[in-house]
Amino acid sequence: MTLPIFPNSQNMVEFANNLDRYLAGSDELFGFAIAGHGLYTWGNTIQAAKRHVEAW
Rank of each mutant, 00 (worst) to 15 (best):
H37M: 03
P4L: 06
L23P: 01
T41R: 00
F15P: 07
T2Y: 00
S26A: 10
W56G: 10
N18I: 05
G31Y: 00
D20T: 15
A24T: 11
R51L: 10
N44W: 10
L39R: 02
F6D: 02
P7Q: 15
G38E: 04
T45A: 04
A55M: 14
Y22H: 13
A55T: 14
F32E: 02
Q47E: 15
L3D: 04
A35Q: 14
L23M: 15
Y22T: 10
N8C: 12
Q47I: 14
L3H: 05
L29K: 01
G31M: 07
I5M: 06
N44M: 06
G25M: 11
F6R: 02
V53M: 08
V13T: 12
G25C: 13
E28N: 13
I34D: 02
T45P: 03
L19G: 02
A35C: 11
T2W: 01
E28P: 00
P4G: 03
K50H: 10
T2M: 15
N8P: 00
Y40K: 01
M12F: 10
G36E: 07
M1E: 05
I34P: 05
E14H: 07
I46R: 09
P4Q: 05
G38C: 08
W56L: 07
R51A: 15
E54M: 09
F6P: 01
T41G: 05
A24N: 12
Y22R: 02
W56N: 13
A35P: 03
S9L: 05
W56I: 13
F30P: 00
A16D: 11
I5Y: 04
H37N: 12
P7Y: 10
Y40C: 08
Q47N: 13
D20S: 12
P4N: 03
L23D: 06
A49N: 09
P7F: 08
N8Y: 07
K50S: 08
G43N: 03
A49W: 09
M1T: 06
